[in-house]
């Protein structure tokens, strides 16, 4: 049996780390910074949710999609239409948006299985260019160019204003979805996905049934995008077709790559990047935003292929080794022998 050294900080260090995170997300962001920033940070959480979806499908599924804005749009419009036309409670629309985008992703997962590599990237790019036109055409449902006025949900708690409230809603949803993704990516399912991504043949020999796995990954990733869209409609209080243009799809892709395509923790960094950097750049020149995105994408892949999340992960490992916070663990290679049972596990 091979033994590897894995980082494992002592309990005290982990408690302190968790406490710092809790203070940051539960006190500093909602109460200690200016109000307009709070709703921007809620948007960051929403982007992070969508980016985790891209991490799943592109980073682990190996399917490059440039059309995630389509699913974000689906989620947003599901919420908007249910709230505006049918008078639903906005929070009740989140599961509906999640279910519908899961279904749409599942349906698109079939063609996505057949389209290899570049073709899938191209197909999804075209899909995301088409979305605004489709939304404008079906103006009976979508309100056309004018969009739909969803309104911001009011805070039911006296000591929270509306933007703080929606921030906490987004934080709760993002936390749940983060732990779901972390759970998916912690066990045998992760190894099945990575094997299927890196080598179809080996995966098949080990008993990984690639087709349902890839379809499920695509559907799950669409669900993340749909939930993000639903929350986005509540934060902005308004949906219109041109929000979901190709730039949104490409921004999410840029965020995923910059944050680290296989790092779900990096998603928050990627989300901050796409939320704040273009705004700062546009203050200097309107066109600088796209230029910064393009250059960031190329530079990240050249010097930091695993993104900022990957870099932080490596630094963390090194720091733990330096501090002696390690434990011996079983080597992954031994665990792989159990990969044959993966197909029986729920996806």
């Amino acid at each position: 049996m091979n033994v590897v050294i894995k980082p494992r900080p002592p309990l005290a260090a982990r408690v302190i780390f968790a406490a710092v995170l809790a203070v940051l997300f539960l006190y500093v962001i909602p109460f200690a910074i200016p109000n307009y920033l709070v709703s921007q940070l809620a948007t960051v959480l929403v982007f992070a949710i969508a980016i985790i979806g891209i991490n799943l499908v592109t980073g682990y599924g190996g399917a490059i999609t440039l059309g995630h804005a389509a699913f974000v749009a689906l989620g947003s419009y599901t919420t908007a239409i249910l709230v505006v036309s049918y008078g639903w409670n906005p929070y009740a629309t989140i599961p509906v948006a999640a279910g519908l985008s899961w279904l749409a992703g599942w349906c698109l997962g079939f063609p996505a299985l057949r389209l290899q590599g570049l073709y899938l990237a191209m197909g999804t790019l075209v899909l995301s260019i088409t979305v605004p036109a489709l939304l404008k055409r079906f103006d009976g449902f979508t309100g056309g160019v004018q969009g739909l006025n969803v309104g911001n949900p009011e805070s039911p708690v006296k000591w929270l204003d509306d933007s703080q409230w929606i921030y906490f809603v987004c934080l709760a949803v993002a936390a749940i979805l983060y732990f779901v993704a972390a759970r998916i990516l912690s066990g045998p399912l992760r190894r099945a996905m990575v094997t299927a991504r890196d080598n179809h043949l080996v995966a098949a020999v080990l008993g990984v049934d690639r087709a349902p796995l890839a379809t499920a990954t695509f559907a799950m990733s669409s669900l993340y995008a749909g939930v993000a869209g639903s929350l986005y409609a509540m934060i902005v209080g308004f949906v219109s077709p041109d929000t979901f243009n190709v730039m949104l799809s490409l921004s999410l892709f840029v965020g995923a790559v910059v944050g680290g395509i296989t790092s779900i923790g990096g998603a928050i960094v990627g989300a901050m990047f796409i939320q704040f950097v273009p705004t700062w750049a546009s203050d200097i020149d309107v066109s600088l935003g796209g230029l910064v995105f393009g250059v960031a994408l190329i530079v990240t892949l050249v010097i930091l292929p695993s993104g900022i999340g990957g870099l932080v992960g490596r630094l963390y490992d090194r720091a733990c080794v330096r501090l002696g916070w390690t434990e011996a663990a079983q080597d992954e290679r031994d665990e792989r022998q159990t990969a044959g049972s993966i197909q029986n596990e729920p996806a």
Binding site: T58, I64, L66, G117, L118, A121, L250, F253, V254, V257, I261, D285, V286, S287, L288, G289, G290, L291, F293, G294, V295, A296, L297, I298, T300, L301, P305
Partner: peptide, 26 residues
Amino acid sequence: NLLTVVSVLIGLYLALNSLAGFLWTY
């Protein structure tokens, strides 16, 4: 690998689009 190729081309697409906006306005 494919992801790098796609990312570089998308990066180029974004950069060229903005370059046109920068040089000749929108």
